[in-house]
Design a protein around this nucleic acid. Structure first.
Lengths: 246, 246
DNA sequence: CGCAGTTTTGACGTGTTTCAACTACTGTGG
DNA sequence: CCACAGTAGTTGAAACACGTCAAAACTGCG
């Protein structure tokens, strides 16, 4: 059976069970019981490969599915009516994409893969809407969204009350924490996004991001080689992030 | 039967039905059917009066209820570990308080009444968690939280990409829109919060807020007398808010 | 009436953006 | 394999927006 699709699918779609996924505890944190997990297996209809640079979501498109990142790295981007754009967040393994679209039934962000990625497709239409045993999952969704709101509060605090060096330091700390939760090193990381992306997210210009990196390096807190970052003094970085210099 | 409580309750607790509340369409927007609305009536266990200045919620306190604002005006405030504070939002009739606490089971913000207010108490504990007919309401909650996330994205965009005058203009526009949805005038409003509160929310100092007001007034867009604002040129204000001057 | 909190205004300092040039990488085709 | 172009990142100097510090005017309240 021939493939009418472009070559975006790298492998034949493997029907992977959530209950066996090593990211299970991330997608579905605190005790989602066996029954619910098994049910979720049915929910995830397929996996999808998204090559680097491709948009998985487009603002304005009808919300048909949510997506859970399995591997790879995404950025989401919001666009104001007047055309201003801003990176709204970065998503990695275990994160959900599309939640902001639930309210209106249409996506409100673009989600672009920053590296070749794989996502689980969670059809939202009928199933999550009127399903029978949806309770536990909806509750899970509530928690996830609540956490997102808390996170956004943190970002607003960051944008409103910190200077640029502090913002970058806080960003790096958050990022390493998330990476660490996925089993990566806490002291070495490879940034998947450009300086401009970071700047957009953190409310500063790319040149300023660059200067902030240079400064953190000069303080002996980081070692920066392009997108490869080594954190030399996590505690010192923490202190920088905490010092409201504005 | 004597009251062991402090004098925070101004009236005997009237058991008000949501289905008869004139705010119904705000708390429970798009078609929540009669059955669900009736069920919600049972959900709202009581009303509570909150005098001006009093905290209805405290960060860290266990999440026992959500609250729906019936009358009045609140601010929510987040606090970083290092003590930095920021206003995270303003809530008025029809808005829900406490959503950010669902993730952890504890409140993450302080909610302070900016004027004498009344709220509906929505016990969260068992009822919303394992209830039988919860489906529709949970779905409603999902939509509300999703909308909140979208809103927060807007605020982040504002903080990250606009100058202070633009930020204030955008804030005023949003505020009048919400007030208008409640039936108030679109061109005259009374601010319930201080300049400092606005500044905290918008990421600027109170002096800067004041200057921004003065500037908007000098442009002939507003008439400012303390907290009483008259919008003279809504369209012009819109244009200011859209012009990314940073 | 007086006092405390809020708001406004001014002068000044500094952090961030802007504009511009230059350097370091990445991938592509000769 | 190297040359090349295109993209991403760095660095510098000057402009300017916002913060800071200080003081005065206004408001509300006891």
């Amino acid at each position: 059976m021939p493939h009418p699709l472009p070559l975006s699918r790298q492998e034949p779609p493997p029907r992977v069970a959530c209950s066996g996924c090593h990211l299970r505890s991330l997608c579905l944190p605190q005790g989602l019981h066996a029954t619910a997990a098994a049910w979720l297996d049915g929910m995830v209809s397929a996996q999808l490969a998204v090559p680097r640079g491709q948009a998985l979501l487009r603002a304005g498109a009808p919300l048909e599915s949510l997506y859970a990142v399995r591997t790879g790295f995404f950025k989401t981007r919001v666009t104001a009516q007047d055309g201003r754009e801003q990176v709204a967040g970065f998503q990695m393994a275990g994160d959900l994409l599309g939640l902001a679209g639930i309210a209106s039934g249409r996506h409100t962000v673009d989600a672009v893969a920053l590296e070749d990625s794989q996502v689980c497709v969670i059809p939202f239409g009928r199933q999550l809407g009127v399903g029978a045993d949806v309770q536990a999952l909806q509750q899970q969704l509530l928690r996830i969204m609540s956490r997102l709101i808390v996170h956004d509060h943190g970002v607003m605090l960051l944008l409103g009350s910190l200077g640029v060096r502090e913002r970058l330091a806080a960003f790096l700390i958050r990022l390493t924490q998330r990476l660490q939760a996925l089993g990566y090193s806490a002291s070495a990381l490879v940034l998947r996004m450009t300086r401009e992306d970071m700047g957009s997210y953190l409310g500063m210009k790319e040149e300023t991001v660059s200067r902030a990196f240079t400064w953190l390096q000069a303080q002996g807190l980081l070692e920066v080689r392009q997108r490869e970052i080594r954190i030399l003094d996590p505690q010192g970085l923490q202190q920088v992030a905490a010092a409201g210099s504005r």
